[in-house]
Design a protein around this nucleic acid. Sequence first.
DNA 1: AAATTTGTCAACCGCATTCCA
DNA 2: TTGGAATGCGGTTGACAAATT
Length: 368
Amino acid sequence: MGRGRAPCCDKSKVKTGPWSPAEDLRLISFIHKHGYSNWRSLPIQAGLSRCGKSCRLRWINYLRPDVKRGNFTNEEEETIIKLHQTLGNKWSKIASYLPGRTDNEIKNVWNTHLKKRLAKKEEKNHKNQTNDFSRTSSFSTSSTSSFMSSYGNNEDTEELVLDEGQEGLANKSYEPKEDIPTTDHDHELKESSSSSNSSISCDASDCSNSSAQVDVSIPEPEPEPEPEEEEQEEEQEGSLFNFGGPCEADNATIAYDQVNNNSDDHQVIEISLEESDVDFWDMLDNLDDPFQSINESPQLPQELEASQSSNYDHHTEIEYCREWLRDLENELGLVEATSDGVGQLGSEIDHAKRYFQTWPSPPQNLGV
DNA sequence: AAATTTGTCAACCGCATTCCA
DNA sequence: TTGGAATGCGGTTGACAAATT
């Protein structure tokens, strides 16, 4: 052949560049209905003129419900620095220790902030060291030896304890003795927090108050998948698909009326849609009974499952989902209303929101 | 106020790895 | 076992905003 690797998609037929809010919503709604089994075919099925890779990236780095936005905390930065000392530029592995942070984000933070900060620090240290050397002429190897004791000589132990004061060495990369298995993000977090051999002290719950010292131990190789896992997946898929019968008829108008069922005024507000987005809303409206309120649907499959599970906090999950929706609205800038009180974008996001509020929980099969 | 430089970060690109028939 | 397809990953780019001159 000799023509090199075939491109993943036809670039001339595929849109590139920043994602529009409508594209985001289209991707979100599709994934929350169907999950993703095949990124390559997903854009076609979802009606997106995007490359599958681009969809995947957008989802993982931006749209996933558990993506944490905003500045990194000092603790997170310290964690990155320390993990980088052991893992080098293995951004995805570093990300697996920072709940809600993506490899891309961490990479950006490292390249824009941390690397420079460390370079400065090292320069400072170097100057100090040079001064010390010229003063005393006795070269101290303490930092080197302590470093080696932490990184190089622990063949017998899987646990690495990184002490303070090693930042100056952060621009060096060291491969861990044993490679940390790449696992599903959430799965690994759960595993690590429950395992007695658990690793870094920065999981979703205690990241904000983790101590300056970070224990980085190498997790044990991921155990063989539980036999129930397949069943669970099926159940989850069921929860995505079985909300009830499809919503029919003039979708946008009817939809708004239904939402107001709880109040006395059965106001019907026509949602004007751009021509290009009509099929999107058709798709949303064809989803299974998207207007069933959470409080009125005690028998949603996942709730049913939850009622049988002792450690499932359903309300937390719902709150989590709603919070994510609020963040998403802000993020996409779709919350402002026009003078008539119901702007077009506001209506559209409302419409999507009503659907998304029926999610019992973020689909569990959507991890990274 | 305008031009230029610097910083940030989302998105792209292409290679590596894994999966599967 | 093999080869193609799909996905994962890390490096890089480019658009935009903020800061500086």
